[in-house]
Nucleic acid binder design. Structure first.
Lengths: 213, 213
DNA sequence: CGATGAGTTGAATTCATTCAATGTCGGTGG
DNA sequence: CCACCGACATTGAATGAATTCAACTCATCG
């Protein structure tokens, strides 16, 4: 895996706090840096000219944000903190779009960007081929995996986003998120208490939902 | 706009022909280069571990392919020619993932990659928020725009892919593609004869479907 | 020309949405 | 301290969009 750590280590990096609910940056703003998440979690929202919007990602510790704006030097999405968070700003070189030692694209950043492309494409497969409940299962599986990667349990975690956010991300109504959670509970694989999710039967759960992302 | 031209000009570039139906590369293969399309058109298919697949893009003249494999040095999708096509292979440096003069990521390639991320995210918004017919309309609009960018008509073009391909790309059954085309014809905005599409009422068409991508 | 893959169209079904009502959690102020 | 409020969440019932299954037609290419 390739995380934000390499970027943090490699270059001048300005630490910054963001309060829950605040925007780290807004769609359309000039972009001066990319950000690595140190702690907390975010949601990135993309709004089309037409007015419809969707949540594109839920970055958390170890993820890099704002890669989609590197080329155009403009933020493509709005990044909102779900928690009180701490980020690390990696500044752009003033001249070119991505030069300077902090932007040594040849190595890690190229991987980060192609991973980002791949991630989006995988979600697209998911959206195009599977049912609402399967999509939600894959989403929880992904969250579980990322929590584990951070050293946490992986079968007992707290959702930082609302049902509505999840629905926006997965392309379903918030009511369908609720019903799908209830459905998975009826299958005996998870336990849900408000925003706390416990995977009670990991074998069965990953058998059903684990093959996606 | 940033096209493949810059890459073709900048570096050693090996020309290559691909016949209709043949694969330029397959998912999982080691990646030795990225490709710029000179002529013809392609489809890229991503298959998940689970077995479900989706068409992720329809690259045509001016587009760059295989950016999603740059980081991992492995092709993330299978790229199939829809036409007899001509491509231009831009070789990877043997050592790092993307070094050497041909891979000057600092400039154009960074833009190409972030554009690719953005494109995938826009499609995701589309998939999550709009009806089958609106998605198809946006797709045709996108094709029209790309044809125009190549100096062609933009309101009279030929689809290179099957209804099934379109359905896979847009996340709908091939029958729904048919019905949506019929629906748009009933609205009086397009004329469809097999794979030829004519936009008969461009103002009305772009009013309905033009605000998406 | 026949054969085969591609495309259209109809009818029944299913999955998800929408609308609506109700329930729960956290904070804020009386 | 508790009541109240608003945001978040659950659940039910009706509706609707898209899929599935099926029959049939139309191109295209040996």
């Amino acid at each position: 895996m390739c995380t934000a750590l390499h970027l943090q280590e490699s270059a001048g990096c300005i630490s910054r706090r963001v309060r829950a609910g605040q925007n780290l940056y807004r769609q359309g703003e000039a972009q001066r840096s990319v950000f690595a998440v140190r702690s907390g979690s975010f949601k990135s929202t993309l709004t089309l000219a037409e007015g419809s919007a969707r949540i594109c990602a839920f970055p958390m510790a170890g993820d890099v944000m704002a890669l989609d704006g590197l080329g155009s030097a403009t933020h493509a999405t709005t990044m909102t903190a779900l928690d009180d968070a701490q980020v690390c700003a990696i500044e752009r070189a003033p001249g070119g779009p991505a030069t300077g030692p902090a932007f040594e694209l040849s190595g890690h950043l190229a991987r980060l960007m192609s991973d980002e492309i791949l991630r989006a494409q995988r979600v697209l497969v998911l959206m195009a081929t599977s049912s609402a409940q399967d999509r939600l299962g894959a989403f929880l599986m992904d969250l579980s995996r990322r929590h584990r990667a951070q050293g946490y349990s992986g079968r007992d975690f707290t959702l930082r986003m609302t049902r509505s956010d999840i629905g926006s991300f997965l392309g379903m109504a918030l009511e369908t998120v609720s019903r799908s959670l209830a459905g998975m509970h009826a299958q005996g694989v998870i336990e849900v208490t408000n925003r706390r999710v416990q995977i009670t039967n990991l074998e069965s759960f990953s058998k059903r939902y684990g093959t996606w992302l």
